[in-house]
Design a binder for these strands. Sequence first.
DNA 1: TGATATAATTTAGCGAACAAAATAATTCGA
DNA 2: TCGAATTATTTTGTTCGCTAAATTATATCA
Lengths: 405, 405
Amino acid sequence: MTSLAPDAVRQDNTLAILGALRARGPMARVDLGAVNGISSATVTAITAELLRHGLVTELPAEPHRPGGRGRPKTLIRLEPEAARVVCVKLSLNEVQVVVGDFTGQVRHAETRSLTTASLTPEALCDVLEERVRAAASALPGEPPRLGGICLAVQGVVSPTSGTLVWSPALRFRNAPLAAPLAERFGCPVLLENDANCIASMLARQPAYADAPNLAVIMLGYGIGMSVRIEGKPFLGTGGSAAEIGHSKFEPGGALCACGRRGCIEAYASDYALYREAHALLPLPPGDSAHPSEEQMQALVRLAEQGDPVARQIYHKAGRALGYGIANVLALFNPDLVLLTGSGVRGYAAMRPALEAAIDEALVPELVGASRLATHHWDRDMTCLGGIGMILEATDPALLAGKLQA
Amino acid sequence: MTSLAPDAVRQDNTLAILGALRARGPMARVDLGAVNGISSATVTAITAELLRHGLVTELPAEPHRPGGRGRPKTLIRLEPEAARVVCVKLSLNEVQVVVGDFTGQVRHAETRSLTTASLTPEALCDVLEERVRAAASALPGEPPRLGGICLAVQGVVSPTSGTLVWSPALRFRNAPLAAPLAERFGCPVLLENDANCIASMLARQPAYADAPNLAVIMLGYGIGMSVRIEGKPFLGTGGSAAEIGHSKFEPGGALCACGRRGCIEAYASDYALYREAHALLPLPPGDSAHPSEEQMQALVRLAEQGDPVARQIYHKAGRALGYGIANVLALFNPDLVLLTGSGVRGYAAMRPALEAAIDEALVPELVGASRLATHHWDRDMTCLGGIGMILEATDPALLAGKLQA
DNA sequence: TGATATAATTTAGCGAACAAAATAATTCGA
DNA sequence: TCGAATTATTTTGTTCGCTAAATTATATCA
């Protein structure tokens, strides 16, 4: 119920120092103290221990420094080689594997295609094991011992139990994945929703440091969301919270991939937009169930050029998404709602209807001080976020391990 | 960023002990240690200090005790007279004032009517000051010094800034209330949403101890909600989160008191039910804008007796509320959704449509392990919860004050 | 009456944090 | 070039809270 021992304080402070170094790069002891609100005597003690265990190193003094009088700062940095972690992003027919170091830097990345829908849980683990081992060995030097793995998937997962509840990329359901993978690799495995990874990565950016209550909405083939409260990811019971994609726009409305009707996703996701468009508009050829980036860009271009059908499709999508965001504002009231994902390509086309829908749905008192913004999309964001999450998750274990040794 | 000093640990443990005594009644030192995970030596030290300052007292030994061998436990209880607090519940045309002691017990309660809609912020403060002073003096003995006041109102409030953003009971908006009242009384004033008070009270009940993620929905003249995450109230930015009443059922739907269309409240609140019913059904006479309890009960009785119009009205309300709850499940995924408020009188009539709507809206994977239940309604629950909240809020200050003295 | 059991207190020691003093490594100005 | 000033880091001494273990208190059981 309450704090157990004074040594928990030391662990807290040590983790805070590691976190500060990871977030802000090399720092001097004084600054570490100031940032974390501890005395520099304590920082000296903590960093001495970290130095002994090789988790941090002192940076050699700069030959000529900018300004300032007194004794120059001795910068301390995380030792990149102190740990090696992996983030695996599993999406429909694609596996991306990224290897990161202790500082959170990406050291190696590779993307391969894979027919995901036909896999059993065992076959998936087999493939992932092979891909991860290959990626880990791709760097020069001997293959490193992995400190932890983050498996980022679209869909509903339960991070606490390590179970994948449902994913659009896979046919099976309710399969425990973290435990079998952890056994194969002999290291912790964190099963995460892809949106949570991206939100974690965005939350680390200085630009959003003033928004500890943050909702990140990912527009893409489907629609995902991650909500952060007071700087920490919000997971409901079992971790399957924040499912804006299947919150409702209108009862009995458009058919959604989940089998129900009227979900936001059934209006504003790529597959929904494409479903409406492909019979009516001249788009590049392709798989009718899974629109390509090329096709989606063609659709956006039509809307931007004033094609009335394309404009109408985006108008409806914007209205549905606007109502969904209104519900998020009413229920979570975050500082900031951030739209990202490949689907932001169509934001300009959706925007008027989206903003009108929010106005129509909510009185200003309920919108409060919440802001709405977009963030450019980059397919590597997920794994960057996942690397950060698994590092943060394994720091305590790493510390505990080093203390024993 | 991190814990400042070791004395924060002591404060934590002291607060935990006070909290345990308030939640579970008198306890022995050993049990306080076990419950809070601290050694009984520490409990001895902490309780010794609390005894010295008169915040707790030892209970005299029971003359004949049930069983057990060794030395009998010495029970420690909160000293009821150590603090006196007040909860004021402000609703449309009514003010309820409840005086509580340090244990959270109600010592005095009174309810008076008051024409609220015409009040200015200053006039409201005048009335509240008079009513609170009267209630505090109603007990025998000299009027006590108040340790804190909780002002529970319907509507949107910002507990952090102490500002009332909007309330259906009042015509003015965005008025700071906590600060002026705190100055008049010379004690802390906590401005809270009434639903948060009720949720706090329900969360303390042992029956719901297994649901730290809890959504409490209050059905009444309007519809309010309070969400608790990990046992703590969830407030968005500015505290105006969890507004299920104005989340949307259908775009362009029924007109809501907030001025927008399609809000859940516009279908399932008392005023909405009555609006649909009063022209078509034989109900007792009354104010057409504010249905009486008598009128609402008559409406429920008609539905239960099979009247098709009444049934249809409740069916529609249940469906709207079901969709609203589905959004709560998708976005918050709580352990338990608890329906309460005077509107639960109509739950039986709404239930079939409500449950069907949830099924229709969400696949089982998204409902997860969330349960749905009702809790009987009692108009005193709000103030009981408010007493608990203000006590919890003022404990640290009380402690700090005593330490100086 | 003594053995046993349980509760509460006292004692001794440890770990962590801080303030202040001491030391280290610079720049500035004469 | 040398001291004075300045800032960073380390060392020292002290305090505080916690725990484990020993001790004391108060009961039941046989």
